[in-house]
Amino acid sequence: MKTGKIVLRNLGRDNPVFAQILGICSTLAVTNVLKNTAVMCLGLIFTLALSNVTVSAMRRLIPGRVRMMVEVLVIASYVIVVDIALRAFVPDIARQLGPYVGLIITNCIVMGRAEAFALTNPPGAALADGVSSGVGYSYVLLVIAFFRELLGSGTIWGVRVLGDGWVNWSIMVTAPGAFFMLAVFIWIVKGVWLDSAPADAGKAGAR
């Protein structure tokens, strides 16, 4: 498969978040503040890209029966790198993200891409697939975080943009707000953008 095609597909119609509803476990928890979301996304792209390349490079050596275990170990190693780096360079954000950095390991997207793509494709294509899946995931998160922070705290990237007259929608920074926000996002995307595409709702390889 051509690299360009892989990238386009992962950003658009096969976007892991709204087309496959994967990886939203950690999606919702970190999106109440834009800055944390950005850091989380970078960590995820890093893990996804490198674990995809590693699994792909080892694909002929991994015995079929234990492949899940091997994939998990590869992913966990990169997550440890991310965790240590975050705690060293941005300790405040690392503390706020708490366990969610470690939970990149069980993020269904990372496992899903290793299983579905990296095991059967060469490293170059796996890198393209990893990065574009990560970016596809990230922009959804960033859009959600943008609105949650704007409406919930009246700020963007920690800077106050809405005037003093603005009353914060405190629901947006709490759990229910995240669920509603993602639901609305999926609704808009599916209704407008994916209208022409064949209905694929519900076939998600849910984990």
Partner: peptide
């Protein structure tokens, strides 16, 4: 509504449940 089928609706329900649990 068409776009809300499946995951979208499930998320709305989850949101309402989260409100209830609050």
């Amino acid at each position: 509504p068409k776009g809300m089928e499946g995951a979208g609706l499930a998320l709305v329900i989850a949101g309402i449940m989260a409100l209830a649990f609050m």
